[in-house]
Amino acid sequence: MTVPPSPMRHRQPSDDGMTRVELTWIEKRIEHWIRFGRVAVDEIVDRRRRIVQFRPGAIFAFVRWAANDYGTVSSRIDIVRAVGANEPFTTLPFVRPGGDILLKIEGWPKVSQVLAAIDATEAAGVDPCDAAPDHWRHVANRIAAGQQPRPYTIERHRAWLKRREIEG
Rank of each mutant, 00 (worst) to 15 (best):
R35Q: 05
N68A: 06
F60V: 09
I34V: 01
Q53T: 01
D42K: 06
G57Y: 00
G37V: 02
R35E: 14
R50Y: 09
V52K: 12
F36W: 06
E43M: 03
D46L: 05
F62A: 10
R64I: 13
R48D: 12
R47L: 15
V39T: 07
G57V: 12
F60E: 02
V63G: 08
V52A: 07
R55M: 15
R38Y: 08
F54D: 07
E43Y: 02
R49E: 13
Y70V: 03
N68V: 04
G57L: 06
R64P: 00
R50I: 00
I51H: 14
I51R: 15
D69W: 11
A61M: 00
R35V: 08
R64K: 10
A66M: 13
A67G: 13
R47Y: 14
D46H: 10
A40W: 05
G37C: 04
F60Y: 14
R48H: 14
D69V: 06
I34G: 04
W65R: 14
R38Q: 01
V63W: 13
V52C: 07
A58G: 05
R35I: 12
R50D: 04
N68H: 13
R48K: 03
R35M: 03
I34F: 01
A67R: 12
F62Q: 09
V39Q: 00
V41E: 08
V45G: 02
V41L: 06
E43A: 08
D42N: 08
D69H: 12
I51G: 02
I34P: 08
I44A: 15
I59T: 15
F54P: 00
Y70F: 03
W65V: 07
V52M: 05
I59K: 08
G57N: 03
D69T: 04
N68Y: 06
F60T: 01
A61I: 04
R50L: 04
I34R: 07
Y70N: 13
P56N: 01
G37A: 06
R64M: 14
W65I: 11
D69E: 15
D42F: 09
R35N: 08
F54M: 10
F54S: 10
I59V: 15
P56W: 06
R49D: 09
R35L: 06
D42Q: 00
A58K: 11
F62N: 01
V41Y: 02
A61G: 14
I44V: 15
D69C: 02
G37M: 08
V63S: 11
V45H: 00
F36L: 07
I34S: 06
V39L: 04
D46I: 11
Q53F: 12
A66W: 05
D69M: 12
F36C: 08
V39G: 09
R48E: 13
R47Q: 15
V45L: 10
V45I: 15
R47W: 14
V52I: 10
V52F: 09
Q53Y: 13
F36H: 10
R50Q: 12
A40S: 01
W65M: 12
I44F: 02
Y70A: 04
F36T: 01
R49C: 02
R35A: 03
R64H: 05
G57Q: 04
N68F: 03
A61E: 02
A58T: 07
I51V: 15
A40Q: 04
A58M: 03
A40T: 05
N68I: 03
R49F: 07
R64A: 11
